[in-house]
Amino acid sequence: MAIYHLKTPISDQDVERLNIGDTVYVSGILVSARDAAHVRMVEAIRRGEALPVDLRGGVIYHAGPVAVKEGESWRIISMGPTTSARMEEFEPEVIEKLGVKLVIGKGGMGSRTTEAMRRFKAAYLIFTGGAGVLAARAIKRVLGVHWLDLGAAEAMWILEVEEFGPLTVIIDSKGNNYYEDLRRKARERVDEAAREVLGSVPR
């Protein structure tokens, strides 16, 4: 399982090299978007409106920060990933229409996103759930923040990052979904594992 250090903008070739289980560090620009920002992105796509930031070759991070404003600039204190499954409804359209190449979150995404990633060359990676301080350390600067009317957590933060990671590839651009594979294998093991415990139950 390989280790990659990628710089934004991410190309199709960058994405095609990634396989499930690989480790990735990203440097460049990260754009945060949670539920409300995804709703707004999809609304903009459908109305044919431009977004505040060009996401071609871009990286979306499912996260909302704990941030403090110091004078005119912002400092991120903690920014761990949020559960990506909530964005499943919107992500395929975001990948197809906006040209997003990497999506970072936690907990995995479903079959529609997996299919969109195969068709339009993108990948889904997890950042360690809960590791908000580790994430914040890799964020060098806040380049901008849009849609603050949604609240700080739901706003779209434009972040300059250096070696943001480690990220593990969960969905690659070949239609593989690591979590689905592991869950299927785990499911197949349950009955045998349960039988082995039977000798240790009371009575």
């Binding site: 289980g21 759930g129 785990a186």
Partner: peptide, 21 residues
């Protein structure tokens, strides 16, 4: 004894840290 056996069984499922195996 059941706690021990269940721990062994859970760790045979292959889910792992953050579900990465």
């Amino acid at each position: 004894k059941l706690e021990d056996a269940l721990l062994r069984a859970v760790n045979k499922l292959g889910i792992g840290a953050h579900g990465t195996g």
